[in-house]
Structure formats: C-alpha cells, structure tokens
C-alpha cells in the first residue's frame, strides 16, 4: 500500500447520518487502495464504545452523560429529525430497505479493509471512558500529536 495515499478523518459527530458519511468515505478510500485513519473524538467516541459498558466508578455528571448519550453503532441519533428516536428508527428501516449497510456493518467492513481506528484519549478522560469499555476493533488510544502526524502525511483530511 502506498503510504503517500492516505486519508485521515476526525469523527467528531456521533450522529447516525454524519457517521454514515464518515464510514462511506473511509471504506470507499480503503477499497481504492488508500490507507485510512479514523480519529474518534467527543460525540464520535460514543460510536466505538461498547453498548453495555457502564463503568461503576463514575461521578454523577459523567453518569448523566453516559446515560443520556447511548453508546454503540446501533444507538446513534440523527442530527435532524431525531424526534426522540423515531427518526433514526425510520432512517434505519429505509437504509435496510435500500440495501445500504448499517453503521455496525460499515464498521466491520472498515475493519476488514484495514482502516485504523483511534480513540481520543482526552475525550476518554473527560467522559470517564476506559480502554476496556471500547469495542475490540479499536487499534489504539492517542492524542492530537498522533492525529497531526497522520494528517500531515495525508492528501485528504476531513472533520465530520
């Protein structure tokens, strides 16, 4: 694989629609022979957190965030028309009807195509997320220097 052919994506949003765009670009790039890095930060981190993982030693504020913002690829809200979860339900139904892969399937495809998944250590600290509560597909935990090092060598850098 040509190292000069690299895409780096900051997955900031945890919304279903926006993360779907992130994964379409990531898998498409990987299938076109590019090396792809995805940095999951802030709300995006929720996507690579295990659904059932709920560490006990969180303070009340972190517990509130962890309760209000659900983890995992199947629990993502829509950036528009969320309607307390009815929007995503309908959107997922439409996606299935149109044969568009779900986020969970996209994640598996990205992984099998060799996309590197990095979790942001700062967000993990703020939200009280431990490495053990992340999905096993995550390659590493890192900070801004690692993102910049990858972004510097990339021809395409996106913030979604």
């Amino acid at each position: 694989m040509n190292e000069k052919n690299m895409v780096t994506i900051v997955v900031f949003s945890g919304d279903l629609d926006k993360t779907l765009a992130s994964f379409v670009i990531a898998t498409g790039a990987a299938a076109s022979g590019m090396k792809v890095n995805m940095f999951f930060t802030f709300w995006g981190l929720k996507l690579i957190q295990r659904e059932k993982a709920r560490p006990k030693e969180l303070d009340w504020m972190r517990r509130m965030f962890s309760f209000m913002v659900k983890a995992g690829p199947e629990k993502r809200p829509l950036s528009k028309m969320n309607m307390f979860g009815i929007g995503p339900m309908m959107m997922k139904k439409l996606m299935k009807k149109s044969n568009v892969p779900s986020l969970k399937e996209m994640l598996a495809t990205a992984k099998s195509l060799g996309v590197k998944l990095t979790a942001c250590s700062m967000t993990m600290g703020v939200m009280g997320v431990t490495k053990e509560t992340l999905i096993p597909e995550v390659n590493n935990v890192a900070g801004v220097a690692s993102f910049l090092a990858d972004a510097k060598d990339s021809q395409i850098t996106l913030f979604i």
Binding site: V24, T27, G28, A31, S32, S98, N99, P101, T109
Partner: peptide, 9 residues
C-alpha cells in the same frame, strides 16, 4: 440492489 460504496468495495 447495492448503493455506493458497496459496488466499489
């Protein structure tokens, strides 16, 4: 029956 990005993948 498959949409982008599946055909190229």
């Amino acid at each position: 029956g498959l949409y982008c990005p599946m055909p190229i993948i």
